[in-house]
Design a protein around this nucleic acid. Structure first.
Lengths: 359, 359
DNA sequence: AGCTCTGATGAATCGGGTT
DNA sequence: TAACCCGATTCATCAGAGC
């Protein structure tokens, strides 16, 4: 018996996966509900309202209900998966620990956790936490003995001939790629970027294998699978989402050679904030900075990377500008530190050193 | 009863934490061991994985044993922690999902998961997976209602005046910082970089607060806490590790000037009611305030520190929100006054002046 | 055509003290 | 306890208008 393929089934994925022939699927990619628990409304500092994910499909009574739901669809996915197949799940801190623990409890063998480092995340508007700037993927085989697929050379080639790491830098899905409905609003609240699925599918499947997405949503998995000449199957209970996804995937043209498809974002030269020099111990809180002829200006370094000079407090740039009465200042070239031999060296030199170590 | 402080206790942390007065600890930082073998011997996450595990039932036994162990020390940590304290744990994919799920099950409230992006990770020699290039930290409050400490401005300063994100780029601990034993070998297998603890402690504690590390190891937590003028306490059962850590921490010199490690929080700045500006004569009843482009909004100051704008009457915040039709407004930055030279200056600037005169 | 400026927006567990 | 009120808080990117 063959599983259905290259279709979206408007069906509960638990029933759908269980109905597939056992061991018929090469890869499962799952972007399940995250179980976000939003309080009231959230506003940006300019008072505009944040359009959060408060859809009914993301509501669960409690952690136990969420766990029970996940155990069911993971069990169904395990049934459908080949012994040498593998599974990817994606989530945030709200749910990823539930998913990871469940996978382990069920006998899956975690191969990697992968961090999607977002280049352009939404800020934390209230200043109460760190900017939530990443999501986590877990890649797991069905068992420790599984002969899972990993296209090592393809991944290395994608990464300028360096081993692909467990942290992936990519922008969120926006602009032309983001699907819109008739009224111009986003067609799906959590559409994933194609670059992410490109890397997942290229890493862990071979051409013509079957990729199944239990929560198809806007259809990114199907779109990328089709382009990369993999077979695919998706479950999506929401008819509107399913319609959007079908239309999207119909428009995809498979490529002749997947390795020719380059939709990866370039790596950037790392930014090095001044504070990192303090954290790293290149400078210590209390160290003195000098500037101007005859060391006309001086300032003291604080533990958080600000500096203090008489009445002025702030970043190296702010204080540099203030002591000179100038509108602006490049603190990296303005301020100097005394080296062991008594000579002065600009902060910029220390930054170069650090940057070299970080590439 | 006061907890012991600035010491390393060679004691099981479960007993040790339980013996501390309830609610006496401001911050817990834990780098727990990872166990895949029954029999009580614990292995660190980065050590080579246990080879003997090829039976799925062994895994389940090990996972259950590990969960039970973690539940015990987390329960003890919860006992010792203040209601408004917070906890950090660090781990890899082997154990971080167990820890995260347990924290949630026990009522902790996850604030962020943070990714330590390693600039120089160990490569994956066999080429069967992605290079394991990060570790994950979880930062959690004791409950959703907790008034945990987050030094937003310090973190922002540390990152060149941009919000600190949930992904932190740092090298692993090596070179001079890495502690060696008498024979030149590394003194501890999983010594954490001081930069990591610098950021953790600076983010989530105030000077002189108590930081406790249940698995002290080579003493990085104590070293950084001491340097940043926090009180600290560590548990370490291995006498060799404890000795190394004590010697290390003894050599640490705290930053000499307490103001260099102090936290500047705008939220904690002394409150200056708007009315004081009127009382002091900085503004007079009848003076006009302006806001918006082209002085779109205006309001008149009254003698009691309220303001009036057409139909709206009340505080600078209330009227600012009302004229904009916004849910809230910071009147200090919204409203401006005309200076002698005709330019506009925000009320916040006048407040700054007054605050400076009050110190 | 090309530039600048403005506005919109993205998986969000986003107050605290006083009365 | 609950109501009230002060007042702190955003980054990268893209679309579209305006020049």
């Amino acid at each position: 018996m063959q599983p259905p393929e290259n279709r979206i089934l408007e069906q509960n994925c638990i029933d759908g996966l269980n109905a597939l022939p056992a061991g018929s699927v090469d890869l499962v990619f799952a972007d399940p509900p995250y179980n976000l628990q939003l309080g009231g409304e959230l506003h940006r500092p300019n008072n505009s309202r944040v359009d959060g994910v408060d859809d009914a499909w993301d509501q669960f009574d409690d952690l136990a209900a969420y766990d029970a739901f996940c155990r069911k669809w993971l069990t169904a996915a395990r049934h459908a998966l080949k012994d040498d197949g593998s599974i990817w799940v994606i989530g945030s801190y709200h749910n990823i620990f539930r998913l990871g623990a469940l996978l382990q409890d069920m006998g899956f063998w975690i191969l990697n956790d992968v961090v999607w480092h977002k280049t352009n995340p939404m800020p934390n508007f209230r200043g109460r936490r760190f900017t939530n700037a990443h999501e986590t993927l877990i890649w797991a085989a069905k068992s420790p003995k599984s002969k899972y697929t990993f296209n090592y050379q393809s991944m290395k080639a994608l990464n300028d001939d360096l081993q692909m790491r467990s942290d992936w830098t990519m922008p969120i899905c926006s602009g032309q790629e983001r699907l819109k409905d008739a009224s111009g609003r986003k067609a799906h609240p959590t559409q994933k970027p194609e670059a992410l699925l490109h890397r997942v599918i290229l890493a862990s499947t071979k051409p013509n294998e079957l990729v199944v997405d239990p929560f198809m949503g806007s259809g990114t998995t199907g779109a990328v699978a089709k382009r990369l000449r993999r077979r695919w199957l998706g479950f999506e209970m929401d008819a509107d989402y399913a319609a959007v996804a079908r239309q999207r995937i119909d428009g995809i043209v498979p490529v002749d050679d997947p390795t020719l498809v380059a939709i990866e974002s370039k790596r950037e030269a790392p930014r090095v904030p001044f504070g990192w020099l303090v954290e790293r111990g290149e400078l210590k809180a209390g160290d003195l900075l000098y500037a101007g002829g005859q060391r006309q200006f001086s300032a003291k370094v604080r533990a958080d990377g600000t500096i203090v000079s008489a009445d002025h407090k702030g970043s190296i740039h702010q204080v540099g500008a203030a002591v000179q009465g100038a509108p602006s200042c490049n603190g990296w070239t303005f301020w100097h530190v005394v080296q062991n031999d008594g000579s002065l060296v600009a902060l910029d030199v220390l930054r170069q050193k650090l940057r070299a170590e970080m590439t």
